[in-house]
Amino acid sequence: MNMHVIKNYLLKTIIYAILIFYSIFTLLPLYWSVITSLKTPVELSKIPPTLIPINPTGYFYIDLFRMRHFGELIRNSIIVGSGNAVFSTIIGTFLGYGISRLLTSRKTKDLMTILVVMCRMFPPLIMVIPYYIILSKLGLINTWFGLIIVYLTFGIPFATWTMKGFFDEFPPEVEEAALIDGCSKFGAFLRITLPLLLPSILVVLIFTFLYSWNEFLYALILTTTYDAQTVTIGVFATVSKWEIAWSKIAAAGVLSAIPVIIFFMIIRKYIVRGMTFGVMKG
């Protein structure tokens, strides 16, 4: 009896120890970047490092905007991310609907789905080399539009897969009722199904935006100046150019992570759907 209580207590302790330990591991890089970004150079050289900045300064954040064009970089990330989100979601919604509703044979359905998922599996590195030549020929290097096109390579498969899942779950009876009322199939899609699935479409929009915001390799090679470079490139530039300015590097990292963390908090209910692309329906 007593043994049982002790055993239970011990088990609980182990469980919470694991949970707390992993939480610290998860938060430590973020926390350390935040405090490093707020420290003055004098405080940064203190031994041992302070855990909470004594004299926090926002200087490095302001400097990013003044000297490193972070205003422009954020603007570019927003434009490219929104452009990609809109195009990918539109194309993905159509294709997702097509696969879910217009294909009757189970086999073609599966084949199409696998084809779409496979497109997401092409490693970016194999795509970036041909895209460098293609965009050069089209004069689209260092443009928002060029980057948006390239981002469709991961945007469309993701949007298609996710929307297909939403359509699969949406009861077909709703549309059938509209058809009986004299609606065409396309009319039913446009006036009945789409409005009802609006929240799902919003989720897809946010996730494609997020994926674009986080993208690095394509932007590194296909953009060259802050007219089109994105935030991730700005973060990388602080590392490669001012290896010594650690607080500025930290500030750039924190600044670029803030929007995605906010988005994460908004859509955390849908995170299973957005992050397990290709694995399960959610």
């Binding site: 973020l30 490092p49 986080n214």
Partner: peptide, 23 residues
């Protein structure tokens, strides 16, 4: 789940700071 949404390049940079021998 938080790390899933952090840009991978930023994760690399944040760990570079975390791995720093002095601070």
């Amino acid at each position: 789940l938080l790390p899933l949404v952090i840009p991978p390049i930023v994760a690399g940079v944040m760990f570079k700071i975390l791995y720093h021998p002095a601070f």
